[in-house]
Deep mutational scan, measured.
Amino acid sequence: LVRYRTISKIPQITLNFVDLKGDPFLASPTSDREIIAPKIKERTHNVTEKVTQVLSLGADVLPEYKLQAPRIHRWTILHYSPFKAVWDWLILLLVIYTAVFTPYSAAFLLKETEEGPPATECGYACQPLAVVDLIVDIMFIVDILINFRTTYVNANEEVVSHPGRIAVHYFKGWFLIDMVAAIPFDLLIFGSGSEELIGLLKTARLLRLVRVARKLDRYSEYGAAVLFLLMCTFALIAHWLACIWYAIGNMEQPHMDSRIGWLHNLGDQIGKPYNSSGLGGPSIKDKYVTALYFTFSSLTSVGFGNVSPNTNSEKIFSICVMLIGSLMYASIFGNVSAIIQRLYSGTARYHTQMLRVREFIRFHQIPNPLRQRLEEYFQHAWSYTNGIDMNAVLKGFPECLQADICLHLNRSLLQHCKPFRGATKGCLRALAMKFKTTHAPPGDTLVHAGDLLTALYFISRGSIEILRGDVVVAILGKNDIFGEPLNLYARPGKSNGDVRALTYCDLHKIHR
């Protein structure tokens, strides 16, 4: 019993810090008490220290592992850092350059016999395009090294910054494609005289377009951006097909006994025919423009016929181009109408809503002055909100995010209106959640004399007048207030005048 009563005193000691020596009952000389009392004092002292730490809000209350900052290894790049964003855009520009100039170089340097010394005699450094290609190869190699040090988000939505895990993730992902696209074939085969082989191998750079397509997928929600990307894709495919079309004609031209190829026909049409040795002929500019003209006309199913396939190889390629053109029509131009419709969806919704308003007016036989006010209010409210119901949009977000959005939407009023000066951010967040926005066209009466005042109004834009009878008592403008002081009276009061809008007004109100 003594032991039980001794232990039962522990909660009292913990909360009230009572010393055991003052209790005459606990001072009985028993061996059990002498053993338990020192333990009680020690526990009391420890609990006292913990309570003191909690009340003082000291940093040592938290466990040590929670006080440590997340460790980022040296030379690790955050995937959302500004440097990584700028670097990704730079790589994107280099990939676009590669997609345009690599097929052009591979096709127009394929057994090209233009006048001038061969590239091997001039030297590697004197070729501007080769120098640019070398810079692109170096940048792609540097990009691989950067990807080995860039964080990523795993399946659990955690940012991984450990170098080993980053390397394994990159090896399992895009490393092989990036490595093949970054191989400097110019340096590996330079001086061997195989410019045709170098041009063909350099087309491996186009593998990076797969990554670019995935990154550009984030802009699919913007109709104008999608339309622009589709047109660029169409032009890029036409450019690639033009390079292939020229390569076919250029390879067949020296081996044909009869002059029936499209390059021969082009030379005869523009007065620059090929001679018996295969030299001469149109310039590279004429060849490229004509090839691009043929691919565009074939892809769009126009086909004027002034550039036509004559050999079997050219006919087979033309059939493939027609098939590609039909697929592009289905996948690209078939979506253009939907994209344009999405661009004008706001206008369509406006006309639909206006039609419903006019049908309501016609069905209920609203008189002319009231009908005009109804239409003007709808037009003004639509121009202010673009038909978007803010309350319906915010309803799907958590309250903390709703408060931040409301604070942002009402920031101008909260910053410049005098009653809100000096208020804490928590108070402003709470008030912003209570605001209701209303609009009024010129001549609209917001409050009639004798109406119950259940709200306090803040003028965000425009001006109003307060009338008693036919006498203008006051004219209020931006950041002015009218209405009933909230919670100042037990019952809502009545208006002693009319409140009429002089201009288009936007008002925020808080109800009782």
Score class of each variant (00 low, 15 high):
K66E: 07
Q68Y: 06
P70L: 09
H73S: 07
I77H: 01
F83T: 07
I91K: 01
L93S: 05
L93T: 05
Y97D: 01
F101L: 15
F101P: 01
T102E: 01
P103G: 01
Y104T: 01
Y104M: 01
A107S: 11
L110S: 15
L110C: 15
L110T: 15
E115I: 15
A119V: 09
T120Y: 06
T120Q: 07
T120K: 12
A125I: 15
C126H: 01
D133P: 01
D137S: 05
I138A: 04
F140I: 01
I146N: 01
I146A: 04
V159D: 01
R165P: 05
A167P: 01
G173K: 04
W174Q: 04
D178I: 01
A181Y: 01
A181V: 01
P184A: 01
D186A: 14
D186L: 09
L188E: 07
G193E: 08
G199E: 10
L200W: 06
R205W: 01
R205Y: 04
L207M: 13
A225I: 09
L227I: 14
F228L: 04
L229W: 08
L230Y: 10
A235T: 14
A238Q: 01
C243Y: 01
I244H: 01
Y246H: 01
A247T: 05
Q253N: 14
M256C: 08
S258C: 03
G271P: 03
K272L: 01
Y274S: 01
S276F: 03
G278A: 03
G278I: 01
S283Q: 01
I284T: 13
K285N: 03
Y288S: 01
Y288A: 01
A291V: 01
F294R: 01
T295H: 01
S297E: 01
G305S: 12
P309R: 06
N310C: 01
N310I: 01
M328P: 01
M328L: 14
F333I: 10
I340G: 02
L343Y: 12
L343Q: 01
S345H: 12
R349M: 05
L355S: 14
F360Q: 01
I361R: 02
R362G: 03
Q365G: 08
P369E: 09
R373T: 10
L374G: 03
Q379Y: 07
H380F: 10
K395P: 03
G396I: 07
F397C: 05
C400I: 03
C406L: 06
L413I: 10
C417Q: 10
K418F: 05
P419I: 15
P419Y: 15
P419G: 10
C427Y: 01
A430P: 01
L431H: 01
H439P: 01
A440K: 03
P441C: 14
V447T: 02
V447F: 04
H448Q: 08
